[in-house]
């Protein structure tokens, strides 16, 4: 393995890691704020890609407009899920158990709705931008660069929202202490709605960014849900910075394993990495021990 190969692996690992971060952070956010293990999360990833397919391929919009149009739809889908499925269950016993199974039911519904509407055959999206650019010895496709740029922009917007706006701070407050947040006047229901909306946008936009590279299929979201799960657990549930680190770590591992042994070995290696991390740090890289 030459130095150039290594740099190429690193760059591709970082790109894929950043997109994985977008998927995983939405999942982490939902768990952190509302304690819901959101198993239909992967279906929103799929639906993001399918909605983009409608606008980009069927209606011929460019990607900027695709994002502008798809994000509100995803936002509403996420909020509807919270309002009509999660909230009624919150009032009853065994919330964890019921919401987990209800999430699976919603996932089944959404996935096969996608299959019924769009067919079982895979679809592909055109690349974000065509062409390549050469820097020194390395050739980058514009596709890869725009993916990187878009992911950075979305990640930065998320950081800005969480750290600099009132709403975002309220989200953080609920994640830390729901009762305390209520005492100072934060409406829990509003925060939950917001969290589901934003996380769904994150899942869906990651779906749009990855769709030109992978194909879109009705059950394709599961693979990414599992990846998000592994990243989130490795990073520490509810810890956003931990999610960032583990997404990069596992992204680079994926690029490395893919280069050395082939893509089929990626998931076994991820699982091994997860086991190792949990053996050393049972709550993930940056997970707090207070978390349950």
């Amino acid at each position: 393995m030459s130095l150039n190969d290594l740099i190429e692996i690193l760059i591709s690992g970082i790109t894929i890691g950043l997109v994985y971060f977008l998927i995983a952070v939405g999942f982490s956010l939902i768990y952190g704020v509302s304690r819901v293990l959101h198993l239909s999360y992967g279906s929103f990833f799929t639906w993001g890609a399918y909605l983009a397919w409608i606008f980009a391929v069927k209606l011929n919009f460019n990607y900027f407009w695709v994002f502008v149009l798809v994000c509100p739809i995803l936002y509403i889908m996420g909020m509807a899920l919270e309002r009509f499925v999660v909230r009624p269950l919150r009032k009853r016993d065994n919330f964890d158990f019921n919401v987990l199974l209800a999430g699976l039911g919603v996932a089944l519904f959404l996935d096969y709705a996608a299959q019924a509407f769009f067919g079982a055959r895979t679809k592909s999206l055109p690349s974000l931008l065509d062409g390549t650019i050469q820097i020194h010895d390395f050739v980058f496709s514009y596709q890869q660069l725009t993916m990187l740029a878009a992911a950075v922009v979305i990640a930065f917007a998320l950081w800005f929202f969480l750290e600099k706006t009132r709403q975002g701070l309220a989200l953080g407050a609920v994640a830390q202490d729901p009762v305390g947040a209520r005492i100072v006047g934060v409406s829990l229901n509003k925060v939950y709605l917001l969290t589901f909306g934003i996380s769904t946008i994150l899942a869906g936009s990651a779906g749009i960014l990855l769709a030109p590279r992978f194909f879109i299929s009705p059950l394709g979201g599961w693979k990414f849900l599992i990846k998000a799960l592994i990243i989130v657990v490795a990073g520490g549930l509810g810890s956003i910075r931990g999610t960032l680190y583990s997404a990069f770590l596992l992204g680079i591992l994926e690029a490395l394993v893919g280069w050395l042994f082939g893509l089929l070995w990626v998931m076994p290696f991820w699982f091994l990495a997860l086991l190792l991390i949990l053996l050393i740090k049972p709550h993930g890289l940056l997970g707090s021990t207070a978390d349950h």
């Binding site: 039911g105 519904f109 996935d111 019924a116």
Partner: peptide
């Protein structure tokens, strides 16, 4: 056909909501 699994997904959610 494929609406079958769609229906099962809906059934699953409805059962949990109404008849836990």
């Amino acid at each position: 056909d494929s609406y079958r699994l769609l229906a099962f997904g809906a059934l699953m959610v409805i059962m949990i909501m109404l008849l836990p």
